[in-house]
Design a protein around this nucleic acid. Structure first.
Length: 136
DNA sequence: CGCGTGACTTGTA
DNA sequence: TTACAAGCCACGC
């Protein structure tokens, strides 16, 4: 196969990688854009992570709610406002506590993948609220 | 093919 | 501690 022009499937877009990483984030945990970007193999791609999530792939069950900025606060987007409140509600429902200013203690809730790669979490399954899928 | 935009990050004041 | 500015990469048009 020396085809250089043929790469239809073997080209996982960065978005897909990003979604994959976000999907690995366990409950009651949050991750920063830069962290997800680094894990996705896209350093400095923090912005792109936000972009990817902004696109909100309805077909991918991505817990975008667990993605917050480096300050531990929920990122305010341009549109779909209200989703921010929803994000906070969802995180709270998972057990994440918020500061009076609406910030999360990253030192406590930030997801720390140890061992090099996200291993299977024992007994914990992702319960994505259907509201999320319908909201997008 | 080129420019503009953006759910960010980090550093300095 | 907060506020402001510049930098960065990828996608959309």
């Amino acid at each position: 196969m020396g085809k250089t022009t043929a790469t239809p499937n073997s080209k996982p877009s960065n978005y897909e990688k990003i979604y994959a990483v976000v999907r690995r984030v366990p409950r009651a945990c949050v991750a920063t854009y830069g962290q997800v970007a680094a894990m996705a193999g896209v350093p400095r791609g923090a912005r792109q992570v936000g972009y990817a999530l902004h696109r909100c792939p309805v077909g991918a069950r991505v817990p975008w709610q667990r993605i917050v900025n480096s300050r531990g606060e929920i990122s305010t987007r341009s549109e779909t406002r209200g989703a921010e409140s929803l994000q906070m509600e969802l995180l709270r429902a998972e057990g994440v506590e918020f500061d009076a200013k609406g910030r999360v203690d990253l030192a406590r809730y930030q997801w720390r993948p140890k061992g090099g790669r996200g291993r299977a979490v024992s007994g914990i399954e992702d319960d994505l609220p259907v509201d999320l899928e319908t909201l997008t």
